[in-house]
Amino acid sequence: MIDQPQPVLEAIDIVKELGSGAGKVRAVKGASLALVPGELTLLMGPSGSGKTTLLSILGCILSSTSGSLRVAGTETSNLDSEELADLRRKHMGFIFQSYNLFPTLTALENVRIALDVRGQKGFAASNRCEEVLRDVGLAHRLRSYPGNLSGGEQQRVAVARAIASSPSIVLADEPTAALDGENGHAVMALLARIAKEQKRSVLAVTHDPRTLSYADRVVRIEDGRIVGEERRPDGLDAPEIADLTKRRKAHG
């Protein structure tokens, strides 16, 4: 019998209302989701389905209107903004669609700042940053500024920044949206490797079908609701899981 790993993030019946009065919109309508170590999960859905809002809530950046979110065993509903920031600092790494690198800092400094906000300074931190940048294939770009890097390289710096502090959860928002096919595959392969080799929970919000082949699990969201979840069966390769997803959808 195989032990089921404990979830590091568990969201139960999350509801998020945006706006107020007549303009109030329910963006997430009772979504439940758990992330376990060693798994790359894709959260897929059409534009406006609430996937980025849900990602913001799971990342403790946005508070839910109702529902429960536990991160590393801590219930987040009663935490203030500083406590939520502390939780992000301790357990999460983020990758953004537009990379969100600091244009005035080098690749190495962009990664170092993620450790600096965590109080990790000095040579040890610097060495760690160089190590992760080498790990993502940017050993030759340590002192390059974002403006001198390609989109793929910038996203790899962002990945390095997200994993430098060894967080248990990595959350990525459309990590391949701004990348061409080759770079998109490279970044997804990197995320899959991080999940597998470093036993982290990686959740990527995407509507890019190219990413399916790297997923251990695909969670579908539509109109603020989780409408389906497919797990890659053992031995099934990427095109097969993509096909399976298509067929399941066609049959309702």
């Binding site: 600092r89 969100n100 965590r118």
Partner: peptide, 16 residues
């Protein structure tokens, strides 16, 4: 502001 928001998202405290 975008960079400060990124810092905040990365978990930096307001004090930082």
């Amino acid at each position: 502001l975008g960079e400060f928001a990124t810092l905040r998202a990365l978990g930096s405290s307001s004090g930082y």
